[in-house]
Design a protein around this nucleic acid. Structure first.
Lengths: 238, 238
DNA sequence: GCCGACCTGTCACACCACTGTCATACTTGG
DNA sequence: CCAAGTATGACAGTGGTGTGACAGGTCGGC
């Protein structure tokens, strides 16, 4: 049974697991379900991936060398930036007592090995479903533009800014990745999705729509055109 | 080792189970974990206890004489007053998964017999953690809408507002979680229950019914549509 | 039991905001 | 000044949402 491809697909999961066979198995089964998988074989790699990709969910094996799964989980939940990313633990049968510890740390669910793919996917979907975007009243601010992620609202100078879905995603991406040029292709990948075939020029149009929406607040100049390359979101003009 | 997380201890659980040995076992293991246990051997006793103690969670056996666990679960979730109390089902092996899902109960999790105490405690903790603390407030007020939770009454501008059970729960949820976008899927999970399978568009219909009911008081614009995402309850228009 | 009042989930249809594309006007750098 | 790159306005198609209607279900009264 394949879980509905609607809102779950495209969600990214970070798998932290030291044993390669299991890691590969997880990658295979979860990618087939439409998830986007990143893997890490130890805590160090996981930290890197967290910072770079900010996955929607972390799947972590209890048994891990060096930094144990428990420690890493604790670390994750203690970090203000990542504590709202849901966490599922993989545990072996017989570690039941430890599971309680894990759950008290704040992990959202756990799955006992050996597990069926269906069960794992079901639990992942359940956790993802109840996760609210911007779980901890996340607010992004850049250049006088404030985004309330939980409410999906944008304000600037006390003015409420109304955006369509695509423009919102575009602005959200820009405010969280400022001061950096992105090509049209990169923007298509990160905002529209990986396997979508759309004219690159379409990006221009949405850039324009976003500028238009930001104009009343005088913030349209934050989006800068980099001729021959793409666009950049920046506070310093030029 | 027994882990007693501060936030978990003191939480009260109603155990509905007809077989005395299992009931005693559950009481023993859960009390040792710091929970406060009430027990009921049938649906009638459970109803009494619900009304009197209003437990934080209900643990119910699937197999029960007279009123089956299923029926009682459905009854619980249908009652506006108690539908927000999380519910965990005990099921025998072979009845798990699809069978439970197939019947549209809104239980928050289920545990398969035979289960270990640790697993049960872990799942209880997980469910309790994601339960919002604001469960038993007397009165809620938002945007000029007043809800008397105990009386299950809604007023605005001195006008009494008449709602069906579902609309009441929807409004109750919105008023206690304002200024946030919720997808249809999330609303289904949090208002109808976790393992309920209903068309997403049904949410639209109930939103409309709620808007219609709020219209005479001029409060229908508090429910805002966020195109492509879901709905938001907010005092500020736009 | 039978009936009516109420509630619920689903559907079909209508509507319109949003989307992607194009043609055209404009700008930039060599 | 030219060519390539970008901005802009217009436009038709799409898909998400609003809305009324309807069949089945539940509950209480008669």
């Amino acid at each position: 049974m394949t879980v509905t491809e609607t809102s779950m697909s495209g969600k990214s999961i970070l798998v932290v697991e030291d044993e390669k066979p299991i890691r590969d198995l997880l990658r295979f089964s979860l990618e087939r379900e439409g998830f986007q998988i990143e893997t890490a074989e130890d805590a160090a790699a996981a930290r890197l991936c967290l910072a770079e990709h900010r996955p929607d969910l972390v799947l972590i094996d209890w048994m891990m060398p060096v930094t144990s799964g428990l420690e890493f989980a604790r670390e994750l939940k203690a970090a203000a930036t990542f504590s709202d990313i849901p966490l599922i633990m993989l545990t072996a049968r017989g570690e039941e007592g430890d599971k309680v510890k894990g759950l008290n740390i704040g992990c959202d669910d756990y799955v006992t090995k050996p597990f069926s793919t269906a069960e794992l996917v079901a639990r992942i979907s359940a956790v993802l479903r109840r996760t609210v975007p911007g779980g901890s009243d996340e607010r992004i601010e850049f250049g006088g533009i404030e985004i309330n992620v939980a409410a999906q609202r944008v304000e600037s100078n006390g003015l409420s800014i109304n955006l369509g879905p695509t423009e919102y995603r575009l602005l959200h991406f820009f405010t969280s990745h400022p001061e950096r040029v992105y090509s049209r292709e990169q923007l298509l990948d990160r905002i529209w999705g990986q396997n979508v075939y759309i004219e690159e020029r379409t990006v221009d149009v949405h850039i324009r729509r976003l500028r238009k929406a930001l104009a009343p607040a005088g913030k349209d100049n934050l989006i800068q055109t980099v001729r021959g390359t793409g666009y950049r979101f920046s506070a310093t003009p030029g």
